[in-house]
Design a protein around this nucleic acid. Structure first.
Lengths: 253, 253
DNA sequence: GCGGCCAATTGATCTGGATCAGTTCCGCGG
DNA sequence: CCGCGGAACTGATCCAGATCAATTGGCCGC
């Protein structure tokens, strides 16, 4: 490890991050700049997907992790009887493909919701690097664990029985995540369809549509197709937690 | 201690596995027996929990991973407004605590559903070992990824809108998991309460109770409190996939 | 501008599961 | 053996959200 004394050039770093995406993830791993640059050079591969393009499909052999550089992806599973479930949406800077680490095969499909640019990290190269850079290994573990926690929040969201709470939680979390990309967290652009949102939340499209209308009537937000303007973040927050409704189902044991 | 050339003594290995639990997880990592034994000796710490006892609580600092040796645990999250959500049940041989890797803090609580014996793996010790045993690191990554995939299946389950499908999927998966522990997969013992099951599936207790009765009436299984006897695994399987019902909600995009 | 197409919205109706209110079952301590 | 207490089950009712059926709105190619 290098001079703890010389502080890392953050702005330059950010630029590389923007350029590749992975590096952002390595930041907390205590990796110094020289290593970062070395890393960057090895993962510069990029891909561009049109809207609807598939990054990988369920069952594909695993050979790389991916970082979204721009655009948005969704991950979807299709089970035996053809039912689909949207697992998540992936914004710029977020990682995709972690589900394949366990079985050497992708357990879900990743599809672009709009023109997207993706940074590909061949796993063979990554393994090489992790053996050289001790902090990276740990960081990788953190990332996967973080993905697991994200999946858990999804479960918690779907555990809510009021559809309005689910949607409110979804919008709030989206707003928070956009916060890393834009200053204004009150204007959301939803690249996913109403069908995707509905499926993600475990309700039907009509319900999502009606809820948007209801929220608009309540003065919580303004809707115009792909754009949501949150007028009252406080009210949205209230709607997340048992919004005036009675207690949740089955408090355990 | 053995030589790397000699094939691993599987039966002896299994015994150690049973004894500690972690080792099972390392099996595919290409670790030789000498290393396994070294590993075993360092993680032999055990704990016993009575029914209702907490292994860790949401917010606790992270310092160890755990493997269930005997008994059953449940993991639960409690969000801001006090709503609880059961995330999962953990049978003997399964790992718990992975959710803390990302944030150095447990994101959920783990509670024993019956008298349980737990094997504790201090993370500091684990880190030490991973630096010495290359395959272990990779294996750890796999394990966390596997946990993530498990969480994804939970999402898929909760995405089903027919409560009966959810319960059927739950029972089937439980039956499969018990298969690793007992020959007979048609007799399930449910250590968790109906409340836990309901909460896990995102329905209310009454619904679970009624569904059990309905399934019994259909001749799919026999219920007597904690014991479920699956009479017709084939019918149970059918009930998992759009059992005669119409198509699932919002096929995406 | 016009027509076709598809996503989104709205309206009307139906129903599965939530809610409310007991009742039954079973283990346990006296 | 009896009475108590908590979990599980059942029955009656209600309602949020699913389903079915149009309608609207926006975009694109002609």
């Amino acid at each position: 490890m290098t001079q703890a004394s010389a502080p890392i050039d953050l702005s330059q770093l950010r630029r590389s991050c923007r350029a590749c995406g992975l590096l952002e993830l390595c930041l907390p791993a205590g990796i110094d700049q020289a290593e970062l640059e070395r890393l960057d050079s090895s993962v510069r591969d990029k891909r561009t997907l049109e809207s609807g393009g598939m990054l990988f499909r369920q069952g594909d052999p695993f050979h790389a992790l991916y970082v979204v550089r721009s655009g948005t992806l969704k991950t979807v599973v299709q089970d035996a009887d053809g039912a689909q479930q949207v697992l998540g949406f992936h914004l710029p800077g977020e990682i995709v493909g972690v589900d394949a680490l366990a079985h050497d095969t992708h357990q879900s499909s990743a599809e672009a919701l709009e023109r997207s640019s993706i940074c590909e990290l061949p796993y063979s190269r990554l393994e090489e690097l992790t053996s050289q850079i001790p902090g990276l290994q740990r960081q990788l573990l953190r990332i996967v664990s973080r993905e697991m926690v994200a999946e858990q929040s999804h479960v918690v969201t779907m555990g809510r029985q009021q559809a309005q709470e689910r949607l409110a939680i979804f919008l709030r979390s989206l707003s928070e995540r956009y916060g890393r990309l834009a200053r204004d967290t009150t204007h959301l652009i939803l690249p996913m369809s109403r069908y995707d949102i509905a499926n993600y939340l475990g309700v039907v499209v009509e319900t999502v549509s009606r809820l948007f209308t209801r929220m608009e009537d309540l003065g919580v937000l303004r809707v115009s197709r792909k754009v949501i303007h949150i007028l009252r973040p406080d009210m949205l927050g209230e709607m997340c937690g048992a919004g005036g409704a009675r207690e949740r189902a089955g408090r355990a044991s």
